[in-house]
Simulated scan of single mutants.
Amino acid sequence: MQIHPAILNIMNQMRLMESDGSSEIKQVEQSSINKTDSSAKETEIAARKGGRTRPPLSFLSILNDANIEIDMSCPHKLCDLLYAGVYLKPNTLKYFVDKKSNKNCFAVFPREFYICWGENPKYWKWTQEKEPSGEDIEVAELLDVCWLEVRGKIDTIDLSPGALYEIVFVLKVYENPNDDIEKKHISNYTLTLTIIPPRVKRLSRQAILKENPVGNWFEIVVGEFIMSPENVGIMEFSIEEYTPTWKNGLTIKCAIIRPKK
């Protein structure tokens, strides 16, 4: 199998960095996923030295597919960039590598979601939130709905094979002192959280938000899955609550697809 010159260049630089008298190099599993064949495997190389992890080489195809060019002249800086994350779509879809597990991860932001009545300012409000890395993203703030339906999706083709993944929503709840008696805070309801894999049965769970702190971001697990050939394809995830009472008090920041810790 012929290796792409860009990959050879990175591999050679990694070897040079390891030639300073410390010869410990760990070659971690190699597998490949052929994007036209869900049963093929993905190629992955990792090496450890001084607590650093080299990211999976599949990052090249992920960035190429999104027409993203980055500086690959310094492996250390390249690793730091991938750990921090790269936006594949401006402020809506972010790719990053989990440093501890050396696995591919994604963050999906609300503008990529389907939100029922999401463009109606009577029901939802869109505001700017600054990420720790400095980028501005838009978050969706629930003003008033009785039909709560938020759906996202991710193509799992670029997730790391064999890894146990989880999908979490990053949320914030708030109290509105001006609510009348007919409006109920979202944390009083049982929400249905669902993931729908490409070829296997959907997975749903129930959750109540009242135990989470008001005014602070927190994570709520939607579900988990093993990145097997059966799970290659478009995976959907959602938050739903369909009772007729009007409800508010929820802000949605993003959904994260990452290895289970």
Rank of each mutant, 00 (worst) to 15 (best):
R151P: 00
G85K: 08
Q13T: 01
E24M: 11
L8T: 12
K183C: 14
H76N: 10
K26Y: 09
C254F: 07
E69P: 00
K100G: 10
K89W: 01
Q30M: 10
D179K: 13
K94V: 04
P197H: 05
E240T: 15
T156A: 09
F109D: 08
N104I: 03
P244M: 05
R54Y: 12
G118T: 05
T245S: 14
F106P: 01
S101P: 00
I195C: 03
N34H: 06
W147N: 05
E224C: 09
A40I: 08
P90K: 15
R48N: 11
P177F: 00
R199D: 04
C116Y: 10
N176F: 00
R111T: 11
R15L: 15
S38R: 14
M17Q: 12
T127S: 15
K260H: 05
L203W: 03
I70C: 10
N176C: 11
A140K: 06
F218H: 04
A255D: 08
E224H: 13
F59M: 06
E175M: 07
Y123A: 13
V214P: 01
V173T: 15
E42M: 12
L209P: 00
I195K: 00
S228M: 05
E141H: 13
V86N: 05
C74L: 06
S101N: 13
G249D: 04
S228C: 05
F225H: 03
E175V: 14
Y114D: 13
A107R: 13
G51T: 02
L16G: 00
I45H: 04
L78A: 03
V221P: 02
N64L: 09
P259S: 11
P244K: 08
